[in-house]
Amino acid sequence: MAKTPIAFSLNGMERSMFVDPGQNLLDALRRGVGDLSPKYGCAQGTCGTCSVLVDGKLQLACITLAEAVAGSSVTTTAGLADGSELHPLQRSFMDNFAAQCGYCTPGMLMAAKALLDRNPSPQRQDVVEAISGNLCRCTGYEPIIDAILKAAAFMRTRGRP
């Protein structure tokens, strides 16, 4: 099977790897690189738990062709913290009980980051829309929405820690 070499940036570090034809980015990140933070939920782009940022834009890793990210910059939840300092979104998810089983959490965090990167002062409705592609089955949407709004407020007053 002919493999394709690709190079891309993952959470600020240069990566190069061989990908299989038709391999999706989720599989390439998890099995190829070992970044296990994006999760498998549906492999059809409907649940959002594999959400990552590609060149700053929210995408679903499970339906992104791995070789299409060659030359791009990919951000995952594993790269959200600044060293040992958690991102305000992570801190806010912790403090506001925005995770139960935790399986949707990495995707939720990426969707929230995509929102706050574009809109530092979201209204509640903006948050609802921003996570509308991310399912949570422990049905913790309310704490998640609260956590994102509180993180936004925190970041507006103090900026990134």
Binding site: L36, S37, P38, K39, Y40, A78, A99, G102, Y103, T105
Partner: peptide, 14 residues
């Protein structure tokens, strides 16, 4: 287990 959840490090079976 919340720290593992928000950092994507909680060890699910996969």
């Amino acid at each position: 287990d919340i720290l593992g959840h928000v950092t994507g490090r909680s060890p699910y079976y996969d």
